[in-house]
Each structure stands twice: as C-alpha cells, then as structure tokens.
C-alpha cells in the first residue's frame, strides 16, 4: 500500500498520469465555463443538459454499435443541445417557468435514456457495454485517447472563452445592454450553452451524469467569494476546479475501498465533488470580503458604530439642554 501510494503521488504509473491529465484538464474547462454559467443563472441548465445527454449516448450506441468515445460524445452533444432548446422553448412559449422546465427536461430525457439503455442491456445480454459508467463516471477506466479527446475539448473551450471574453462578460452582466450595443446576444447565449454542453458531455465518462454539474457549479460559486472581478473570478474558478479534480482523483485512487470489494478505490466523481465542496466551504467562511466571517464582523461593527453615534448625539443634546432635541 505504501509504495503504491507514492507511485500514485509521484505519477510513476502511466495510467495515473493519463487519468490525472484528463480530470485536471476537464476541471480547468469546467471551472472556466462554469463561471459564466453561474453568472448567467445557467447552473442547473448544465445539470439538465448532462441528464438530457444520456439518451444521446444510447442512440449513438445503437447506430455505431460499439463504445466509440467520439461517436458517443457526438450523440450526447446532440441530445444535450436538444434538451437546452426544449428548456428555452417551454420557457418562452408557455406560462411554465424556467425552474419547472429544467426539471421536466432533466427527468424526461433521463427517463428516455434509462428506457433505451435498458433495451441495450437486454439486447446485449446483460452487458450495458460500459454505458453505466456514463451515469456515475469511471475515471480509472480512461485510456490515453479519452484524455486526448478531453484535451481537445478543453482547448476549444479555453480558446473560445479567451477570444470572446469581453462579449461573454457583457452577456452575463447586462444582456439588454449588450443587445442594445448591437452584439449578437442570441448567438452568444447559444454559444455559451454549446460550450456548457461540450464540457458536460466530455466529462461524462470521467465523473458521470449526476456530478458533472458539480464541476461546473461548485468551483465557480466558490470563486465568487474571493473577488468582484470577472477575470480574476474565472482564473480562481479554474484553479479551484483543477485542484479539486487532482485531489479528488488521487484520493479516489489511494483511499482503500471497502474491505472485500473488487475494485481498489472509491468512485472518482464523488471524490472530486467532495474536494470541490470542501474548497467551497472554506471560501464561503474565510474569504476576506464576501465571506461569512467577514460579514458577521461587519454587522457587529455596524452596530457598534451606531451605538457610538447615538451616544455622541445624546451627549451633544444634553450639552445643548433638554429643549434642543426635536
């Protein structure tokens, strides 16, 4: 156990290197695009997209007939975008509000995914051909080509965000103003959704449907405590996400699983999520200006200032005599 532990920490094992590179890059992409998702109030849309992409994976499997990562990714991407479009349609065409629309698409599409994957399971006699790993994620089974795919996706996302940073900032800050400025806000909104979908879908095999949303939401929310500046926030969010992904991946590899179980470690997705959650809690309490500790301190000083002011006013009033007070 001990040597194994150091092997993992020191990246001696090539599998570990592959997995770490994959989850780390995924974290970076998710942290960056997640900042915009959170600010644009799209956090749970990411969650819905992740769930909605499951039937896409199944349909792609039906068509291609094997677990081809790129094909599954394309299928997932198509259904993820369809889900996002459905949410937008329900919200703008009916009196149903966005929260219900998100829940409907999330559950409805995922249900379809379950229906299809059960059919696949029954057809291929008890073997879902690794489709199960899309639901909970199995980073340990990632191979080099998977990591390269994630690296490509991360590059596309970072490049797009880098080029269009100014536009995205305007979009998140004040959509109406951006529209009045003549920016193509609809296009930008769709592009942001596409990036969220791309990132979500690329993360499915590593962290799974349910928890990919965590990588989008938690680091960005944590970064929000540290700064009021969007550029800084994006950088911090990316850093927190990478840190969470690396720590979580290593933890899932080194912490021994339950005694007597077959696999060695804990599932990766939950470990990454928990690492992110810890960083979030630390940020929420300790961040210097927006943190809770700082807030409580400020409330106390407000009360003190008020009391002081009152005492002064009274002292002055008394000095002037009792009639002076209005």
């Amino acid at each position: 156990m001990n040597t194994e532990f150091w092997d993992i920490i020191l990246l001696k094992d090539s599998t570990t290197r592959t997995v770490l590179a994959g989850t780390g890059l995924l974290g970076l992409a998710a942290g960056v695009v997640g900042s915009f998702a959170v600010l644009r109030r799209r956090s749970l849309v990411g969650d819905a997209i992740a769930h909605a992409s499951l039937p896409g994976v199944c349909v792609a499997y039906f068509i291609v007939g094997e677990r081809n990562f790129v094909a599954l990714l394309l299928g997932a991407m198509a259904f993820g975008l369809l889900g996002a479009a459905t949410i937008a349609g329900i919200r703008s065409l009916t009196r149903i509000k966005e929260d219900a629309a998100i829940g409907l698409v999330l559950g409805g599409f995922f249900g379809l995914g379950i229906v299809l994957s059960t059919i696949i399971q029954k057809q291929s006699s008890g073997n879902r051909a690794g489709l199960d790993s899309f639901i909970f994620g199995k980073a340990a089974s990632m191979v080099a080509s998977d990591s390269w795919t994630i690296a490509g996706v991360a590059a596309v996302i970072l490049l797009t965000v880098g080029v269009l940073f100014k536009e995205f900032r305007l979009l998140c800050f004040d959509r109406e103003f951006a529209a009045a400025e003549g920016r193509p806000v609809l296009f930008l909104d769709l592009l942001l959704l596409a990036l969220i979908t791309l990132c979500t879908v690329a993360g499915l095999p590593a962290v799974g449907v349910v928890l990919i949303a965590a990588l989008l939401i938690i680091p960005a929310s944590a970064a929000r405590f540290w700064t009021e500046n969007l550029t800084v926030m994006v950088l911090i969010s990316g850093a927190i996400a990478v840190l969470a992904a690396v720590v979580g991946t290593i933890a899932s590899a080194v912490i021994p699983g339950p005694p007597g179980s077959l696999s060695r470690g804990l599932p990766t997705g939950p470990c990454i999520t928990l690492a992110a959650a810890v960083l979030f809690l630390a940020s929420m309490f300790l961040a210097p200006r927006r943190g809770i500790v700082a807030d409580v301190w400020r409330l106390f000083s407000l009360r003190r200032e008020l009391a002081l002011q009152k005492a002064l006013t009274q002292a002055i009033d008394q000095g002037r005599g009792p009639e002076a007070r209005p």
Binding site: V38, L39, R41, S43, L44, D47, D99, V210, L211, A213, A214, L216, I217, I218, A220, S221, R224, F225, G269, P270, C271, T273, L274, A276, A277, F280, M284, R290, I292, D295
Partner: peptide, 20 residues
C-alpha cells in the same frame, strides 16, 4: 449569506450531498 444565485446554491448543496 453567500449571495450566490439561488440555482447555483442548490446545485452546490445537492451535488455535494449526492457525492457523500
């Protein structure tokens, strides 16, 4: 307390608890 948008706040809580 944290002035995080409501949907993000829910996302943080339920994904963390689900992971646990």
């Amino acid at each position: 307390w944290g002035r995080i948008p409501e949907d993000a706040a829910m996302g943080v809580v339920f994904t963390s608890l689900f992971a646990v």
